[in-house]
């Protein structure tokens, strides 16, 4: 028995579009946050911590912690604040300082 209804079947989302993450194709809904699209696609590990190289991913989800930073057009940006768009080329900060 559940007292909190399952709404997942009643949510309508925008069309799926494709972008790339470290050259791998990823599908996300146009307009949703990049962090969410990456999480859904199983890409949790977005960067390595600079000092110990430990894996890191989205944490605060409100643009503060800088853990979900990825590269777009050479700039480091927070994936929780970037929007999925078709053809976006996203690079991780894995494996480099």
């Amino acid at each position: 028995m559940r007292l909190v209804p399952d709404h997942s079947g009643r949510i309508r989302r925008s069309a799926l579009v494709e972008f790339t993450f470290d050259d791998a194709p990823v599908k996300g809904h146009a307009g949703e946050s990049l962090a969410v699209a990456l999480i859904r696609a199983g890409h949790l590990h977005l960067r390595d911590a600079p000092e110990d190289g430990a894996p890191r991913g989205a944490f605060c989800c409100m643009g503060l912690c800088q853990e979900c930073v990825i590269g777009i057009d050479g700039l480091a940006v927070e994936s929780c604040r970037e929007i999925v768009a078709p053809g976006l080329v996203v690079t991780s900060f894995r494996g480099r300082a």
Partner: peptide, 9 residues
Amino acid sequence: KSTAILDAP
């Protein structure tokens, strides 16, 4: 909600 959500309860 983001623009990716077209309809939701």
